[in-house]
Structure formats: structure tokens, C-alpha cells
Write a protein that binds this DNA or RNA. Structure first.
Lengths: 230, 230
DNA sequence: TAGTGGTCTAGACCACTCA
DNA sequence: GAGTGGTCTAGACCACTAG
């Protein structure tokens, strides 16, 4: 009740805000004032208020003080798991099948997404991810062999391309785009759905520092939904 | 260069990890060791390592020490903005139009999502969100009037239902689900697309403490994509 | 320019968990 | 049982910015 952990302090302040004790947009007490009120050090209050700011509950500014955000920012920590983990999370057995693999000299759109010129050698892959042997997601991927030459001779029977790359080139950064798309003939055939079926689609392009590594399009077989709490 | 801010320390450790100085899964130096190496206090190292743990780069355990995550957890801070802000972010003018509004006595699916019995009075709304006067997203929403009685007589001409609710009942929590769906006749007509068009769809149910407030389905007119960095 | 949050430090004790 | 991270404290100085 009278705990002075940063966790307890954070929840006590959050409760006051939720209860409407401070009007939206209003300035709330400063760190020093809270510290005295709660009988703890300013450092502890600081950590509690920083956490609330990270959550989008309050807004902090030097000299300006801490204010209740007029509209809380709805945000969530979205984790994008490996397809294998998505499958295994539902207690199904994960397998994958390499449908196609080869050097792609065209791939204009993939080059654009990776901001690559026309000369870089790209490997193109099509992979089908299965859950208990049934189609789960269809993946088209292009890999920049200039950045990852070893990929040209990678054994993709154990680990899928994505898993191979994430092990070989960890700590990369990237851009993700979620959308809805019509199943192409190719995707429809692989996923065993009618052409034109709405597919939840994830596009992702990955860099290591400034070097583009790979770009991919992952199409999930319905019904698939990405769930999270907010 | 020799800055001892938690920010600088974090980046120096991150650089070592990225450079492969510590093998994946390996234990890295403890807080005390880093503190001496970098000439700063253990508190500062602690904050830097906590930040890396939040990012999913390392894993920390008491007595077990800090380890490089074998596979970094790809996660992103996904912000779900108000539709108005999504529109205005592209420098278009936001308007909305209320297509339907009334008490809904059935709404079995909505009741299930809110975990409500058959007796609670629900208000049903259909709203079209527009960007520069053109359809942008179609919203179907149910509001639990038991939790928000004032909503029954809310003036929704200035603020949309979502904006009204977020102002009246801020700091709520909820569940979100992203998926791809076929445009229903109703949605297709409102969005001026053919029936069956793939629509990026966001379902969201909101609670305030334990009380269900509202559930909604938002269907975005193509082309729409939710972009974020990772 | 004054007030507020941002941050560092040194020291201390605690809690978890691996061996 | 011992080692490691988790956290609190008191004090200090700094950096930003509102008024």
C-alpha cells in the first residue's frame, strides 16, 4: 500500500489520472512534489513518470512540467514472430517447402524496395509455410547476394530462408507494411484458396546498417489475424 | 566519444554486439565490469542494458547474467492513430458522415466480443470517414449504453463516435485484431468499391477497467497500408 | 532567467536463481 | 550459498524552455 517502488508509484499516479483527479491537458505535480507526497526519492518518481510518458499517458517537458495527454496515444508493443513461432504457438507442427529458387535479373519492384540499382544480383525464393501439413502462409523473397554471398549456397532444408538470414545477419533494422491484397494466381495455388481471396499481407525490407539484405512479401491464408492488446 | 551518458553506453554496447564481439547466446560482461571499463557508475550501465533488453537485443537474469539473445526479437512500437490523424497526416481534409444510428437488440457477435449478455442496450453506428471528400474507411460500431449512457444523446456532428468516446472515456484498454476481409455489400457501397474487394480491417474492443465500452470494425479503402519501422 | 525534467554518482540492500 | 541484476536514496549539476 505504501510501497515506494517505482512500480507502485507509477500505478498510484496512473490511478489518480484514470480517476479524473487531474483534468485532461492539465499540469500534474512535479517530481519533487510527488516525491514528498509519496515519501520517496525524486529518482523513483522520475522513473515512474518516464514509464507513463513512454506509454503515452502523460507528456513531459523541461520547465513545462508534466501534463496529462489530452488524448492518450493508443500504442502497442507489436511483436512480429517468426512464422515458425506463429505456427507452434497454436500447437501445430511447422514445416516449410521451397517452391522455387533462382537468380532474378528483373525484379524491379524488389529492387525499388531495397533501393538497389539494376546490377546487384538478387536471388528469388518462393516458400510455402505449413501448419500440420496444411498451407499457412506463402512467402516471396528476394535476397541481395552482394550483401549476403553465402546465401547463394545456403542449405534451406532445415531452416527457412527467413530463419537462415536472421541467424546470419542478426540485429538488422527494417521497414514493415501491413495490408490486404487479392491472392495472385501463384499465391492462390500455393495456399489452396480461390484466386482473388483477400490475404493478410506483410511486406518487410531489411537492412544491416546501410546495406539492404532482403525484401519479402508474406501472404497468410485466411482465417488469419494479428492480435494484440493495447 | 568517451561520453558516459546511458545513451552513449547503450550504443557502445550495441555496437560491440552488432560487430559480433560477443557470440549469439553468449554471456556478456556484468554491470560492474562494464561500469569500470567505461568509467561510469553501475547505475548508468544498468539503464543502458535495460534499454537493450527492452529492445529484445539481450536477455537479463539475476545471477544468470546478461546474454545476447540467440534470435533478436523483432518488435516495433505500433501506434494506432485516430482515423482523423491518419487522414490529416497525408495533408488531406478529414470529414465523416454518420450513415446509421440506432439501438441494436441483436448484435450477437458484438455482444460476444464485449463479453456482454443479451440484455445490455447497445447502440449501433455506421460511419464513413472521408479524406478530401472521398471514402477512406468504413466503421461499424457498437456502444454499451450501460457503461456510457451519455452516448445515447451525444452530438456526433463535430467529433466522430471514436473521438467522442476517447475524450469521454480516456485511458481505457483494449484488444486489437488486424486482418484482411472481403468487402460486404454494405461496406462496398459506402467505400465505392466492388463487393468482395480485399479490405484491410481493424477490429477493436475497449474496456474501462472491467466494463466493456465499445467494439468496432474499421475497414480501410484500398490502397491502404499500415507502415512502421522495426 | 528561473523552473522543471534529465541524468550521473556512490553506496547500499534486496531478490532471484544458478550451481 | 554466492553472484548477478533490480532498485532505492541523497545529492549534485546540467539542459531545455516557458514566460
Amino acid at each position: 500500500m505504501t510501497a515506494t517502488t517505482h512500480h507502485a508509484i507509477r500505478e498510484r499516479i496512473r490511478a489518480r489520472i484514470k480517476a479524473g483527479e487531474y483534468p485532461l491537458g492539465a499540469r500534474i505535480p512535479g517530481e519533487a512534489e510527488f516525491a514528498e507526497a509519496f515519501g520517496c526519492s525524486r529518482t523513483t518518481v522520475n522513473r515512474a513518470l518516464r514509464a507513463l510518458a513512454d506509454e503515452g499517458i502523460v507528456e513531459r517537458r523541461r520547465k513545462g512540467g508534466t501534463r496529462v495527454r489530452p488524448l492518450p496515444v493508443p500504442q502497442a508493443q507489436l511483436t512480429i514472430p517468426l512464422v515458425r513461432e506463429q505456427v507452434e504457438a497454436t500447437r501445430r507442427r511447422y514445416t516449410h517447402r521451397l517452391l522455387a529458387r533462382g537468380i532474378d535479373l528483373a525484379a524491379g519492384e524488389a529492387r525499388a524496395r531495397m533501393r538497389l540499382g539494376a546490377t546487384a544480383p538478387l536471388m528469388h525464393l518462393e516458400t510455402l509455410h505449413l501448419a500440420d501439413g496444411r498451407p499457412f502462409a506463402f512467402e516471396r523473397r528476394w535476397v541481395n547476394l552482394e550483401a549476403v554471398p553465402a546465401f547463394a549456397s545456403a542449405d534451406l532444408s532445415v531452416f527457412s530462408a527467413n530463419e537462415w538470414l536472421v541467424r546470419e545477419v542478426p540485429f538488422s533494422n527494417g521497414e514493415v507494411s501491413l495490408s490486404a491484397a487479392s491472392a495472385s494466381e501463384r499465391a492462390a495455388e500455393a495456399l489452396a484458396v480461390p484466386t482473388g481471396t483477400p490475404l493478410f499481407t506483410l511486406d518487410r525490407t531489411t537492412w544491416f546498417d546501410e546495406a539492404p539484405i532482403t525484401t519479402m512479401t508474406l501472404s497468410y491464408r485466411p482465417p488469419f489475424a494479428l492480435d494484440f492488446a493495447i
